[in-house]
Simulated assay, not measured.
Amino acid sequence: MNVDEYEKMFRLEGRLWWYKILHERVAEALTTHFGTNRNVAILDLGCGTGGLLNYLHRQGYTHLRGLDGSADAVAFCHERGLAVSQLDLNQLTDFEPATNYDAIVCNDVFCYFDDPALTRLLSALAHRLKPGGLLISNNNAFNVFRGQHDLAVGSSRRFVVANFERLLPPAGLRIGRATYWSLALSPLILLMRQWQSLQLKMGWRTEANAQSDVYLPAPWLNETLYRIVKVEQKLLPRTPFGSSLFVVGSRGEGGKV
């Protein structure tokens, strides 16, 4: 992503409904697996500008580490005072090979890797997880949602559950839970993406100046969207469709997923 996209992410991660939902989902997965233990070692791989790490720190987690391939993203993390290092994620195998983690989070990271590179990354992740360790990953879902946002952030692919059912086991990982979200907002998101596609086809906007969906709506609308998704999560813990796919997996058989 370009520095403008990182700057938007840095400003909005703590307020935008989508980020708030995602951060809460990650925290819920950690609590389900580790209970009240806040001293577990957590790595946020591809941590962006550090919004999730900042959120987890406020939740009381004490052993947090982040890695990202972008110097811009790492600079924003350092503004937050976070322990984040710059690393080409393809080089994870060689980075501090003796360090292992109880949980690794990879949110919207896998979309930058083709299958061979992703297979290598997943194997490296499995080796960095302690036995029974947790893998948490949010991902772009379903190609029908592909639009200007993907172009703006450089995303090259979208996923369905079957992709992870195929890719995780050879790396020594298993899926515990997977769900798409948000079903209720899917018609609105699809309509917006179709409008974006029309803009590109008509030449009203070019790929070079494509813009992401990272912007803060009016406070009442931001809160309404947040509440809609929270109600959906309560009524429908798993849904069959949505623009994002949240996956919780683990290494080996230990622990509860």
Score class of each variant (00 low, 15 high):
212 S>F: 03
222 N>H: 05
78 H>L: 15
69 G>V: 05
167 L>I: 04
256 K>D: 13
18 W>I: 04
178 A>E: 05
252 G>D: 05
189 I>M: 08
94 D>Q: 10
116 P>V: 05
109 V>R: 01
254 G>Q: 15
136 I>M: 10
27 A>M: 14
154 G>A: 02
114 D>K: 09
237 P>T: 13
21 I>L: 10
192 M>Y: 06
40 V>T: 09
52 L>I: 01
55 Y>G: 07
100 N>W: 07
12 L>M: 12
78 H>W: 12
24 E>Y: 11
29 A>M: 13
67 L>N: 00
107 N>V: 02
252 G>M: 07
182 S>A: 14
172 G>L: 10
96 E>W: 08
215 Y>C: 14
159 F>D: 04
170 P>W: 11
156 S>W: 07
75 A>W: 04
227 R>T: 10
197 S>G: 11
5 E>K: 07
17 W>R: 07
44 D>W: 00
190 L>E: 03
38 R>G: 02
92 L>V: 03
38 R>C: 01
170 P>G: 13
83 A>Q: 10
87 L>P: 01
106 C>E: 00
148 Q>W: 03
142 F>M: 14
226 Y>P: 02
156 S>M: 12
28 E>G: 13
130 K>E: 12
199 Q>I: 00
60 G>E: 15
119 T>R: 05
93 T>Q: 11
197 S>K: 15
45 L>G: 00
126 A>S: 12
100 N>Y: 09
169 P>M: 14
160 V>G: 13
232 E>W: 02
110 F>R: 00
16 L>C: 07
138 N>G: 01
220 W>I: 14
72 D>P: 07
16 L>F: 13
40 V>M: 12
167 L>F: 08
162 A>T: 11
14 G>K: 15
188 L>R: 05
187 P>I: 07
35 G>R: 11
37 N>M: 08
200 L>A: 02
31 T>M: 13
241 F>W: 14
32 T>K: 11
115 D>F: 01
225 L>Y: 03
152 A>S: 06
44 D>E: 02
256 K>M: 14
189 I>A: 08
254 G>P: 03
115 D>A: 05
133 G>S: 06
79 E>F: 06
18 W>P: 01
193 R>W: 08
32 T>C: 12
236 L>V: 10
71 A>I: 07
5 E>H: 12
215 Y>L: 12
154 G>M: 04
11 R>K: 15
221 L>C: 11
165 E>F: 08
62 T>I: 03
209 N>C: 04
56 L>D: 01
58 R>W: 14
168 L>A: 14
179 T>N: 12
161 V>W: 06
187 P>N: 09
32 T>F: 14
218 A>M: 14
23 H>T: 07
95 F>I: 04
236 L>S: 08
190 L>S: 05
85 S>I: 00
78 H>I: 08
5 E>C: 09
19 Y>I: 03
181 W>I: 05
45 L>K: 00
113 F>Y: 10
177 R>P: 04
218 A>R: 15
180 Y>N: 08
135 L>R: 00
58 R>K: 15
191 L>Y: 08
70 S>W: 02
54 N>C: 06
131 P>C: 10
56 L>M: 10
73 A>V: 03
235 L>V: 15
186 S>W: 09
115 D>S: 02
127 H>V: 07
202 M>I: 12
84 V>L: 12
96 E>I: 09
147 G>K: 02
174 R>K: 15
71 A>G: 10
186 S>L: 09
54 N>D: 09
219 P>G: 13
16 L>S: 04
187 P>F: 12
63 H>E: 13
